[in-house]
Design a protein around this nucleic acid. Structure first.
Lengths: 230, 230
DNA sequence: TCCTCGGGGATTGCATGCAAGGTAGGGGTG
DNA sequence: CACCCCTACCTTGCATGCAATCCCCGAGGA
């Protein structure tokens, strides 16, 4: 019973996916007519979508000069992690009293599967980690049942930062990250919100260190820079 | 050298002010043609403004059914305060090392003026408190120099919740609130971020109690309900 | 009396057209 | 030779028109 989406909504969703999925690199120009043709609609819904993406921070919109995919500096990246490091531990703590055994089992399953595909060896498949990780965090956020905090977090994660992040993890940080997931499950099972909060805080700090290091490398290595003046 | 704003930007700003200022009550219908005439532009920029306000959470937008000013429940109000109670203390702590004597003096001045117009007596002027309070908090947020956290906070405060809140403070809570401002100044002067953080946490908790009580009263008292089905 | 089923009016959703503003490239000048 | 300006093209910003959808309200039947 899902009501039919409007063209503007489809354009919004498609553009968001294109940006978050990395098909449109940061700094890439977003011409209205080009997008309209690509999406098979007129410029009007495209403009509406761009406008909303701009207020979400995914694109930068300059009057009379059009839209570009938003770029981010290392400082902004650190800012996002500052925000995550206050929001996600809080959400995790909220989730604890709401976690029913079935929920914990589902999270446990996700954590185990991440461990399976994330551990170095013949079965390692880092690409498979991304959706699993997303599912884990989404489920945790849903358990918190706190729409306002969740919305603030969703607004923060926007930048295509977390996109394919596991490729940038070094082996030790990755092992830590996987262990955190398992430990969060343990904290949930124990019903200890402070434990869960602490592990999530560590989890974000670990991710922060990895991402900031990767971003610094990318910023100084011209070979990997995405074009910004296309 | 401020470049001329587009019609859509003006519509956006005007609508935002109208909503935040309470001229458009929560639940009020926002017809495109009506707004377009009121603002002297065509429907297109109005649509764009409504679209952006929707993604900011200020209006609710239902396909084919138009826009209404967003309404909020007591639960959502509490959610907003949950968010503020993690963000504002953090921002306040960030502000401490950046506070130069001149900044502290300016905040001190604001706190004193709030005390002057907020203390019961012949000089009490609760309406004057609102802009002073805003200036105080804005200045503090600016000092934190943390755009990401600030943006998340700004997105949260949206609901016209904080609008004319001082009218709902009881005498004791108001006195507490004014004292908090002064104490934050003291913490800044002492250069103690944890002190500042703790006071701000109390400040938000106090405000939360006042606002939730007021909202509960309003929700049960039909006389003060704003029309929602206009 | 209550529920169901249209019909008219109004409103939104989208496409298109036009004008204002911006960008790039070439010629002229110091 | 470098710099500036000017022109032509392109893009965006906005207005308007038309079709699709929804809401309201009244008539008919159970």
């Amino acid at each position: 019973m899902t009501r039919p989406l409007t063209s503007a909504e489809r354009a919004l969703a498609t553009l968001r996916d294109l940006i978050m999925g990395g098909d449109l690199a940061p700094g890439a120009r977003l011409g209205e007519v080009e997008l309209a043709e690509r999406l098979g609609v007129s410029r009007t819904p495209v403009r509406e979508a761009l406008s909303r993406l701009a207020s979400e921070g995914l694109v930068e919109l300059v009057p009379n000069r059009g839209a570009r995919v938003a770029t981010w500096t290392v400082a902004e990246l650190e800012g996002v992690f500052d925000l995550r490091s206050v929001l996600e531990p809080q959400l995790t703590a909220h989730a604890v009293p709401n976690a029913r055994p079935a929920d914990v089992d589902a999270l446990d399953d996700l954590a185990r599967r991440m461990l399976a595909v994330g551990t170095p060896g013949p079965d390692q498949d880092l690409d498979a980690l991304v959706p699993l990780n997303r599912a884990f965090h989404d489920r945790l956020v849903a358990l918190a049942a706190h729409p306002t905090l969740a919305a603030a977090l969703a607004a923060a994660i926007h930048p295509p930062i977390v996109r394919r992040n596991f490729l940038t993890y070094d082996e030790e940080s990755l092992r830590r990250s996987l262990a955190h997931h398992a430990e969060i499950v343990a904290a949930l099972r124990a019903g200890d919100p402070e434990w869960a909060r602490a592990v999530m805080t560590s989890h974000i700090a670990n991710a922060r260190a990895v991402m900031v290091r990767a971003a610094r490398l990318q910023a100084t290595d011209p070979a990997t820079r995405t074009e910004e003046t296309a």
